[in-house]
Amino acid sequence: MELRHLRSFLVVAETLNVSRAAERLHLSQPALSRQMQDLEQSLGVSLFIREKGRVSLNDAGRALVEHARELLARSDNITSHVQAISRGECATVEIGYAPSLAAELLPLVLERLGRTHPSLNLRMHDLSSDEMNAGLKEGTLHLAYTVGAGVLHESGLIKETLITYPICVAMSRNHPWARKKKIELSDLAHATLLGYARHAYPEYPKFVEGILAAARVKPGRMEEFDSASSLLLRLEAGSGVSLVPLSFACHTAERIVLLPVSPDVPPLDLVMCWRRGQDWPGLRTVREVSAACGHELRMRRGKTTAAAKKSSGRSVGSKQ
């Protein structure tokens, strides 16, 4: 029994007409008839009820239809898998990521890779920038999605900026400041400032301290948390605020509001980082898909910003 005979059989079973089936298969009618005879001979059963000018399936033929579909689908999967192995796309890619900053991008990347490259095996690791730098240097990580400012400056690493996030102030919708249009940095002198723990994300406290020092602001009180989920729970309690990138919105429930900060502060870059010289097919595929998703997010944000400015302009004009 040959796979090509099964493919031809399914076309005959669908059309119940040897002439039309032969046309679809680009075969002569005698050649297709011989294939069906060879298939019946290999199985040792008749598959068709042959009448003058037409054919129909008998019980054995109807039973073979489902088996043939399953077998051909499995054959196609085997072919795709073996070809993917040959292209180097089935190796495991070890990936580190910063959860808050990559929360918007990573779901898009993983969904697309799962759809277009199902043979790729991705192992994801929630790590600090220091841990990602060490993993890239030691070879235990192949790729990292991390804060641009946290990447080691050495010739052995390559980084590509995927998207840039402005800094916002996050708070509960029940917080007294939630109705403001923006938050002044000087306001933080009277607030409980919530943030990530130094031992878990050492680059975050340094970033926040730099912002506050430049504005000559000292918060009234500071609390540290070792994960985005614990920080979010504390924010929902309503008594504190946090300086976070706009990507934090992907974590928040409806009870959290993110407001712009004034004056403007340096944004955070989400970068993709890998070791120079690592360019095998599976890793290259992940990088290419990540770059494409980053571009789509930038374009989407640009359109949203333009629409908001246009709407704001109409509102101002209507008041004059």
Rank of each mutant, 00 (worst) to 15 (best):
I211T: 06
G195S: 07
N133M: 07
A170T: 10
E223P: 00
S227P: 01
M124W: 10
P176D: 11
S186F: 00
L143Y: 15
N133G: 07
T161V: 13
T192Y: 11
R123A: 11
S172P: 02
M222P: 00
V217R: 02
K218D: 04
L122F: 00
V151I: 10
K181W: 02
V169L: 11
L141P: 04
R123K: 09
P176I: 11
I183W: 11
L212T: 04
Y165K: 05
E138R: 13
I167Q: 14
R221F: 09
A189Q: 13
V169A: 14
L143F: 14
K206N: 13
A134G: 00
S186D: 11
G150S: 15
L120T: 01
I167F: 04
T164M: 06
A228Y: 03
K206D: 05
N121M: 12
P219A: 02
S129Y: 02
T140E: 12
D126N: 15
S229H: 08
H153C: 14
L162E: 04
R123Q: 14
V208Q: 09
E131K: 13
D226M: 06
V208F: 12
R198A: 11
V217C: 01
A189V: 00
H175A: 09
N174Q: 04
N133Y: 08
I163L: 08
L141A: 07
S129D: 07
A191C: 09
S229Y: 03
L193C: 01
A149V: 02
K137N: 01
C168S: 10
I183N: 08
F207R: 15
H125Q: 08
T140V: 08
I183V: 15
L122V: 03
K218M: 13
A200V: 07
V217E: 02
P205W: 08
K218F: 14
V208G: 00
F207N: 09
E223V: 03
M222S: 03
Y196L: 15
A197H: 02
I158W: 12
T164W: 00
I167Y: 04
Y204R: 09
A197G: 09
L120H: 01
P166A: 06
L188I: 05
E184C: 00
V208W: 14
K180W: 04
P176M: 13
K206A: 14
R216C: 04
M124A: 03
H190T: 09
V169H: 05
L193V: 00
H199S: 02
P219S: 04
D226K: 08
H125I: 00
E160N: 06
G148P: 14
K180L: 13
L157S: 15
G195A: 05
D187Y: 02
E224S: 11
A178N: 03
K206W: 08
L143M: 12
Y196P: 03
S129N: 08
S155E: 08
E154A: 11
V151M: 10
S186Q: 06
K182H: 12
I163V: 09
K182S: 10
L141C: 09
D130F: 10
K159R: 15
H175R: 10
G135F: 14
I211N: 14
L188G: 03
H190V: 01
A214G: 01
A200L: 01
F225H: 12
L212Q: 00
E223W: 07
A213M: 07
A213P: 04
V151P: 07
D226Y: 12
V208C: 04
A214R: 09
E184M: 02
Y145S: 13
A200I: 02
A215F: 03
A189N: 09
V169Y: 04
L193E: 01
A134P: 00
